[in-house]
Design a protein around this nucleic acid. Structure first.
Length: 419
RNA sequence: GCCGGGGUCCCCUAACCUGGUAUGGGGCAGGCCUGGAGAGCCUGUGGCCGAUAAGGCCUUGUGGGUUCAAAUCCCACCCCCGGCGCCA
């Protein structure tokens, strides 16, 4: 299906691969597809002959005659079997290529191999403030324990303590209410998914680098509720009048971070488990770019309400990931690191995921693939870092952002522990 | 986990025992009819190959097997419902 799309827009697709710097073997895939189509034609012809023979046999048996063509059917069966074996080998190769086949690249995406080619779209708030990092603050106020987490679970784990636990749940509760106000439907998904579901949502490289597998089961721990929300409508036909479908998911996210050795090793910035409130939209194709802007604007409004300075970047073609045709990152200012760091990722996957997940919609008499879009609303551990570092007061307290105060039972500051 | 019942096209449903190429209804789309609407009637409704043709192949939860032939018989697995057991 993705193949047909690519055959229709072959030049554009070659250009997209070039922009990504992808070494995807497109020519080989096209050759295999030609071979596949030829085999299907041959098999269809043989099956047609077989069907005709079978009907003759049935007719003869009904009229009481002895059926004598059985050996002819056997010969056909052998020929069919042989072609089918070849076909299934070809299809196997096609499938494994399709699992790593990247999406198109949208024309407004900056072309370049790495993040240095990202283009800043806009900035909000006063960046440049410096101060202690979340680890120092967390230790000083007894809000984070990393050593004991290392003892129980290893690197990249953490215990949150005291008011930071409450602040985490306040962020989640605020994020969910925020999503509902924006017209999204809340969804708390299963935290484990079958392989087929995960494969429809990601490219293969994600499996090795990110995904934890449950032993002896066809189940994988969620890396983001995005995948579970895509799976929600797996193999379904939606009605045009129900689109767009907007969901906000809440779940923990489990990530191996296998490809990230040595990066962000301290603190709770890059960890194996974190909570995330996620926006997801199933859209009609003609509306998906409008919704892409809507999703990033929602995330921006959320971080503005927390009074955290940020910038939005248009991610360069080489950093997109296979699924996305365009991706915005929202990067928050972290005084402890003296730089902007990624807190939100907002992608338009076009029909890439929908084709793999077989999600279509009915428009009058025809069926079309939907477009899917996803964006973080808030990954709470990273937001906690941003709050701790940006709202740290000279007197050693952390000011709780206004919208979270009601979720903290009116509490306005996190106070240092009295010794 | 155990015992029983079940999974058919977008939805519902017939055929399953007794193997012969998936029935009917609803919805939706188009057409006829109408001043207009409704009712009624007709046609279409998934996937693949092919030129958007003609035509053909495939499709009854998934994968195997028996057979000239499988929705139908056999085996394994998945899921749903009911009962029992276990459990935060």
């Amino acid at each position: 299906m993705m193949l047909r799309l690519i055959r229709d827009r072959l030049d554009e697709y070659r250009e997209s691969l070039k922009k990504r710097g992808s070494d995807f073997p497109l020519e080989r895939l096209l050759e295999l597809d030609d071979r596949r189509r030829k085999l299907i034609q041959e098999i269809n012809g043989l099956r047609h002959q077989k069907n005709i023979l079978e009907q003759e046999i049935a007719r003869k048996i009904r009229s009481g005659a002895e059926a004598i063509e059985k050996d002819k059917v056997k010969t056909l069966d052998e020929q069919i079997k042989q072609k089918e074996n070849e076909l299934s080998k070809v299809e196997e190769q096609i499938n494994s290529l399709q699992l790593v086949m990247p999406n198109f690249v949208e024309s407004s995406v900056p072309v370049g191999p790495d993040e240095s080619y990202n283009v800043v779209v806009r900035t909000w708030g006063e960046a440049g403030k410096t101060g202690p990092d979340h680890i120092d603050i967390g230790l000083k106020l007894d809000l984070i324990d990393l050593e004991r987490a290392a003892k129980t679970s290893g690197a990249r784990f953490y215990y949150l303590k005291r008011d930071l636990v409450r602040l985490n749940y306040a962020l989640i509760a605020y994020g969910l209410d925020f999503g509902v106000r924006k017209g999204f439907t809340l969804l708390q998904p299963p935290y484990m998914l079958r392989r087929a579901i995960v494969e429809s949502a990601v490219d293969l490289s994600a499996f090795e680098d990110a995904i934890y597998k449950i032993e002896n089961e066809d189940l994988y721990l969620l890396t983001t509720s995005e995948h579970a929300i895509l799976g929600y409508h797996y193999d379904e036909i939606l009605d045009e009048k129900d689109l767009p479908l907007k969901y906000v998911g809440i779940s923990p996210c489990f990530r191996k971070e296998a490809g990230a050795h040595g990066r962000d090793t301290k603190g709770i910035f890059r960890v194996h488990v974190f909570e995330k409130v996620e926006q997801f939209i199933y859209s009609k194709p003609e509306d998906s770019w409008k919704h892409h802007e809507e999703l990033i604007r929602n995330a921006e409004e959320f971080f503005q309400s927390l009074e955290i300075p940020y910038r939005v970047v248009n991610v360069a073609s080489g950093e997109l990931g296979a699924c996305a045709a365009k991706k915005y990152d929202l990067e928050v200012w972290l005084p402890g690191q003296n730089k902007y760091r990624e807190a939100v990722s907002c992608s338009n996957c076009l029909e890439w995921q929908a084709i793999r997940a077989k999600i279509r919609y009915r428009k009058g008499n025809e069926l079309n693939y939907v477009h899917t879009l996803n964006s973080t609303l808030v990954a709470t551990e990273r937001a906690l870092i941003a709050i701790m570092e940006n709202h740290y007061q000279p007197d050693g307290r952390i000011k709780i952002p206004r919208p979270l105060v009601p979720y903290m039972n009116g509490q306005e500051y996190i106070e240092p522990q009295k010794v």
